[in-house]
Amino acid sequence: MLVFVIRRLLQSLLVLFVMSLLVFAGVYAVGTPIDILISPEATQADRIAVVAALGLDKPLWLQYLLFVQHAFGGDLGKSFAYNIPAIQLIFERMPATLELASFAMLLAVVIGLPLGLYAGLKPKSLPARSIMAGSILGFSLPTFWVGLMLIMVFAVWLGWLPSNGRGSTVALLGVPVSFLSIDGLRHLLLPGLTLALLNIALIIRLTRAGTQEALLTDYVKFARAKGLTDARVVGVHILKNILIPIVTVIALQFGSVIAFAVVTETIFAWPGMGKLLIDSINVLDRPVIVAYLLIVVAMFILINLLVDIAYSLLDPRVRLSDAGTN
């Protein structure tokens, strides 16, 4: 177990290193931000001074080495556009993204699990068939378009829900959150639902498949033979046994949800780090792009590692090994 974790950590560091190299070289190949940052009226001397102050006059390899050196000190450079440390900028926006992603995951479980259970218990019934047809639609719908349609129906036509921003936030342990106020919850609902859609479909399918499998097992038959109520058989015996794959998928999907939040945040003008990335790409704010990508990649590696470890703890049949290629 310990060997596995160490091996995976080393591998993760290697991935992170390669990623930083690629991202750094790539971002610097795209073009120079100087033209955006310096006004056309600036004199040549001013230009040279700014270029030197940003460290853009040094050769690329030296810039990278300096970047790595600073990165170990927790400094990923200053944003060109905001003139504050990129890492600070991202950490300021991160709670909004994490809140949106968590809310979306919660919605996915609360909606997906009961629907999937129902579809698994009564597969032939009309509601179950509609649920499954709906889940196919959930996989096929282009998520960003669904977001637009939700805005159109609920914000423009019906006027029930707001279409952009976080609404009023409440400070929880010093971090502003939306879910503690009615206004904030109203703002969360549409982006949360948009982001949850794909995962609702996924959880419905997983739950249904798991339920159908569990119904055929001996322990369920035995539980029924003992005369347990349906509620207990379903709620305890079945649910407990199908939960492992569902928990795994939820954990693994959390990373994708954060990545996909880029789209949702752009549509709903949600002030998270995904929207920050798109804004930064548009103005070629290199340090923020590099910092965002490295932080998200690091988050991903961490999530994957935690899932692997949690999986082995939840299910004793799973043995962790380093033979990942077969």
């Binding site: 690629l22 790539g26 994708s256 996909f260 789209v263 990335l277 998200v296 994957n304 290629t325």
Partner: peptide, 25 residues
């Protein structure tokens, strides 16, 4: 080859595409 493929598959497609387009333009 397979380790490279596995590492890539552990990231969601949208993130990889975003990284690339941020770099390539």
């Amino acid at each position: 080859l397979m380790r490279v493929a596995d590492i890539q598959l552990s990231f969601p497609p949208i993130l990889i595409a975003l990284v690339l387009l941020a770099l390539l333009g």
